[in-house]
């Protein structure tokens, strides 16, 4: 602050702020506030625009599965089936992708030779750059066909579990297929987040485990996974957010029907995002407003998922 050069008198702080500092501080706060404004603006838009159709709706929006909104008289539509399908697809994707992502991340950080690790990390990042419509094409043209024998086997051996009850959809365009493609899509983000946090585990912690006579796997369980837990959960939630909102791939793969069906191998179900994309071009009357109401529900689900994740991460803060 003060200089002690003998030729000039010590500079006294004047309490005046430097102009560059002021500009920078205001720009930064402005950028921060902008995010909140955008979020509030989107929420307000969704609420206001959906009111129109929700008021006119003749049935309960949250418990109805049918969607008859493209009319000016007595619209009857509900988000129940769509919300169920959205959560189901995203949950399948998350359950399939997270263990694989953790495995890949552990392999990259702790098992692979350095050059293999670098290459693999690069490929995972590339996977994230593939547009979702390409995943959708791959899913519907190639994957669903290949999955038929696998689905048949699943029904044969695990059909007694309601989830896998038959009859197996002839086209393979089922919830499980959609979930699988979503899982591939969210794999890179979860892997990347897990990899970063596994890299950050302090060497002191890892050596502590090894010095107790831990094998490499025991060291990972003792020092790496507990340390990386919040990061992995964060990555999984980012992935879940993407899976919930993913439109194109799901719209291309699922053969939609508005039912609440827990049978993963049968055709049926639909997600909010895909429904909006498919219905919007033909929406008339209350149709657009009703679709916006569905969007509002998606917005709420995503928000709830994120807050839930933050809660999980914060709960054990004392230990991290």
């Amino acid at each position: 602050m003060t200089t002690t050069d003998s030729s000039t008198p010590a500079r006294v702080p004047t309490g005046r702020r430097r102009i560059g500092d002021v500009i920078f501080a205001n720009t930064a706060s402005g950028a921060g506030a902008l995010i909140l404004l955008i979020l509030a603006g989107v929420a307000a838009f969704l609420i206001i625009q959906s009111m129109d159709s929700l008021r006119a709706n003749t049935v309960n929006f949250f418990t109805t599965t049918d969607w008859n909104a493209s009319t000016r008289e007595d619209p009857a539509f509900g988000v129940a089936a769509l919300a169920f399908g959205t959560v189901l697809a995203a949950t399948i994707a998350l359950l399939l992708a997270t263990p694989v992502a953790i495995g890949i991340a552990l392999f990259i950080v702790y098992y692979a030779p350095r050059r293999v690790a670098a290459l693999l990390g690069y490929i995972v990042d590339l996977l994230a750059a593939i547009p979702s419509v390409v995943y959708g094409l791959w899913g519907v043209v190639f994957l669903v066909g290949q999955l038929r024998p696998f689905y048949d086997a699943l029904e044969n051996y695990l059909g007694w579990i309601p989830l896998f009850a038959g009859p197996v959809s002839a086209t393979g365009r089922t919830m499980l297929s959609a979930g699988l493609v979503l899982a591939v899509m969210i794999l890179p983000i979860i892997t990347a987040m897990s990899r970063d946090v596994f890299h950050q585990v302090p060497q002191a912690n890892r050596e502590a485990a090894l010095a107790l006579g831990a094998t490499r796997w025991e060291m990972i369980r003792m020092a790496v996974l507990p340390f990386g837990r919040p990061g992995v959960i964060g990555g999984a939630m980012l992935g879940l957010g993407r899976a919930l909102g993913e439109t194109m791939a799901v719209a291309m793969i699922l053969s939609p029907s508005l039912v609440i069906s827990p049978f993963l191998l049968q055709s049926g179900n639909q997600t909010i995002a895909a429904h909006i994309a498919l219905q919007y071009p033909e929406a008339t009357g209350y149709g657009v407003s009703a679709l916006i109401a569905a969007g509002l529900v998606l917005f709420a689900i995503t928000l709830a998922v994120n807050m839930g994740a933050r809660f999980i991460v914060a709960r054990r803060k004392e230990f991290s």
């Binding site: 302090p202 002191a204 050596e207 502590a208 485990a209 010095a211 507990p226 340390f227 837990r229 991290s320």
Partner: peptide, 14 residues
């Protein structure tokens, strides 16, 4: 067994 220069208890454990 080994004890290190910096105390390194597992941060996530009691």
């Amino acid at each position: 067994g080994m004890v290190f220069q910096r105390a390194n208890p597992f941060p996530t454990m009691s």
